[in-house]
Design a protein around this nucleic acid. Structure first.
Lengths: 251, 251
DNA sequence: GGGCTGAATTGATCTGAATCAATGCCTTTT
DNA sequence: AAAAGGCATTGATTCAGATCAATTCAGCCC
């Protein structure tokens, strides 16, 4: 289904999610969500200029807004919610290549076609702007380009880790690695870790089946590595052992 | 083993491999190997300046020049030969995340540690320069940064393809995909495709074992999909069927 | 040419995860 | 509260690819 059918458009153009507003201080267009330090290369006037060309869009759970193989016309900046990115084979086999949340940029393709699809896990808000606009933006703000390069480098490192996981780790090691990846999203490692995606999504991310993910989580519960809460949460109760398992140092 | 022990240094500093010289026209520092069009943003004077800070190094087959987890001090530009990039688990399981050849940049890490190791497959020549120097270079030549971003985007696409392969493809589909990836390195798809890496490297790249790679290639030979030549070459004789196989459209 | 060495092939068997098959458990709807 | 539907869990069985085990082959060095 196309963007137009999948998304409800807000009537009025909205501001990009940048510094200030309801975001934490230090976050801005050129920093992306994972910025650790303040990066204030874009001032309020710039923001106002940028916002003119961006349209905020609401994407309902389960709707896709990037179609693998479709012409890559737009850039996206996720302003809230969770997204899954994936590639598929003709017979329906699917590999989720990553999950993206608030602040992430999507659509940074060199090719004219999107190399992956993107689908909302929960309700997602995102800002869309054209690739042409993005190019002008990069000309105006060279540090945006530098930031995107840093972002791409980080994703490349994550991709390499995932290749190691998919190519060489056992089911238990995969699930352990996944949980440790998710626990970094919360402030305190001993609090509940939200897993907004379904078992099916986890399976397609880890190169396993739903059943194996489920069995493995059950095994971790009986081994007292984790407790499994209601409503898509997990709490890690044996962090050290889970780390050892994820690194392939234990059975 | 460290860089110093692994590499023989040339006595004199050498020029970077850029436009002209023994490279094809259109290749230059800011373009990298895969550039399809001419990109002459760096002139001869610039090249002379850059060359002052680069040292060309010779790496013998099987020697590693980037150690996973070691401090990321340098950038590398491969000027000839083939390199494998990999990550490893403590027990020795290994995943090759990619192969790099002439023109490739290595060491573009945000972290202070290298996220992967790099080892020479055959005799490799490369230019090394410090990350500090690379940063200055990017300040001087903004289009270098843009080119690196494009390069990183392409690698990200390749990484996503590899995740699909590792997570969801069968052994036959993996080997077929690999051969089609390698055939793009040669001018004519019906000529011999060089496979400079060992079966073990292929296995570690495809998430398989040596035996499965060998068996699968033998099967492809009996199915008249390929002929297997002497000295690490393969010739594709049924391109269409191989494509269908790689895409998961056939058994 | 004749051994030597490491890589590659081929065969036999085993196993971790997939597949097939119920069953259980929330959430939504009426 | 009951029905319905989707997701998750658990069990039984199968199978693709791993593992274990010989050969065979290709360089290489004398």
């Amino acid at each position: 289904m196309s963007d137009q059918t999948a998304c409800q458009r807000d009537a009025r153009p909205r501001r990009l999610i940048l510094a200030g507003a309801h975001r934490q201080p230090g976050y801005c267009l050129s920093c992306g969500i994972r910025a650790q330090s303040v990066c204030s290369v874009i001032d309020d006037d710039d923001i106002a200029r940028l916002a003119e060309t961006a349209v905020e869009t609401l994407v309902l759970p389960g709707r896709s807004f990037i179609e693998e193989g479709a012409p890559a016309t737009d850039f996206y900046n996720i302003t809230s919610g969770n997204v899954k990115l994936f590639k598929a084979l003709p017979d329906g086999r699917r590999q989720i290549t990553g999950f993206a949340t608030t602040g992430h940029f999507l659509g940074l393709a060199v090719s004219d076609l999107y190399a992956f699809g993107a689908e909302a896990i929960d309700t997602v808000r995102l800002c869309r702007f054209s690739r042409a606009r993005m190019r002008l933006l990069m000309d105006d703000f060279p540090r945006l380009e530098r930031r995107l390069l840093a972002e791409a480098s980080n994703e490349l490192v994550a991709a390499q880790n995932q290749m190691l996981l998919l190519g060489r780790k056992t089911a238990r090691e995969r699930v352990a690695s996944f949980l440790l990846e998710r626990v970094r999203e919360v402030a305190n490692p001993s609090e509940d870790v939200p897993l907004p995606m379904t078992r099916s999504d986890m399976a397609d991310y880890l190169g396993l089946t739903i059943e194996t993910v489920s069995r493995t989580l059950s095994w971790m519960r009986t081994e007292r590595l984790v407790t499994i809460g209601k409503g898509h949460t997990v709490r890690i109760i044996a962090m050290e052992r889970l780390h050892a398992l994820a690194a392939g140092e234990a059975g």
